[in-house]
Nucleic acid binder design. Structure first.
Lengths: 128, 128
DNA sequence: TTTCATAATAGTAACTATTATCAACAAAGG
DNA sequence: CCTTTGTTGATAATAGTTACTATTATGAAA
């Protein structure tokens, strides 16, 4: 099975650079804003297309945050708690050994995210 | 602090019934379709409003699936693996003791969801 | 080089899920 | 009754993302 030719365009390169020169998770819009500084007329569609291409190639990671997708060079490993009432999201210290996780599920885990929901302490006090 | 009066309308009741008579996670659209069988002219906004109200009250649980929110009577406790290439979502057997989890994070965890990403076995073979 | 097939692009429209707005309605309490 | 206030249906608006299309760029083969 021959893999389709895929071209390493300057747009793809620019987007790769942007994600890799940033420590944080970026939204597509943020990447777009940065990319326009390098390629004035780059289009948002191109940004989305290339971000997803990079994710598929395994060069960058993507994480859903609420309703928006975010992208980062780091494999995402994170645990958080979202209060169903006040909607605040609290980070929670948590450790998983990614390698062990991979073994356990039988696939190569690149990123993981433990998302918990419930009532936070404050909202629990001010009962509904 | 007095809690606002809130009315248990027939629309709210209908939506509650729908979620509770279903074992699976439903999208707002699916709930809407069901609800219209009971209340012909119920509006989608009302469905969203009431689903979120039920979530806030803790009667039902909500989980983000890809880009869409889903709702179910069960506290969501689930682990899955999403392939970044073929986008398939594979359920993965996984156990957490919700009580222990609650203790560990110091809040009452109602639902949890472990979401892993990477390349599934098939896609890993047919290398990109 | 020149040619040729086709991947990728910019620009824009379309789409999907969700939220906001608002006039009309309905329930509960004086 | 009448007022207050939560709720509704209808619809517009929004946000994020994807699809479409004519055009351009790329790279392998000739």
């Amino acid at each position: 099975m021959k893999s389709k030719a895929s071209r390493w365009t300057k747009q793809l390169q620019a987007i790769m650079d942007i994600v890799y020169s940033n420590e944080f998770n970026l939204t597509a819009d943020e990447v777009y804003a940065e990319a326009r500084k390098k390629i004035a007329n780059i289009s948002l569609g191109t940004v989305y297309r290339n971000l997803n291409k990079l994710v598929q190639k395994g060069y960058i990671a993507s994480v859903q945050k609420g309703q928006v997708q975010t992208f980062s060079k780091h494999p995402f490993t994170n645990a958080h708690f979202e209060c169903v009432r006040c909607k605040r999201i609290l980070r929670v210290p948590f450790d998983f050994n990614t390698l062990e996780l991979s073994k356990k599920v039988g696939m190569n885990v690149a990123s993981w995210e433990l998302r918990m929901t419930g009532l936070c302490r404050e909202c629990e006090k001010n009962c509904i």
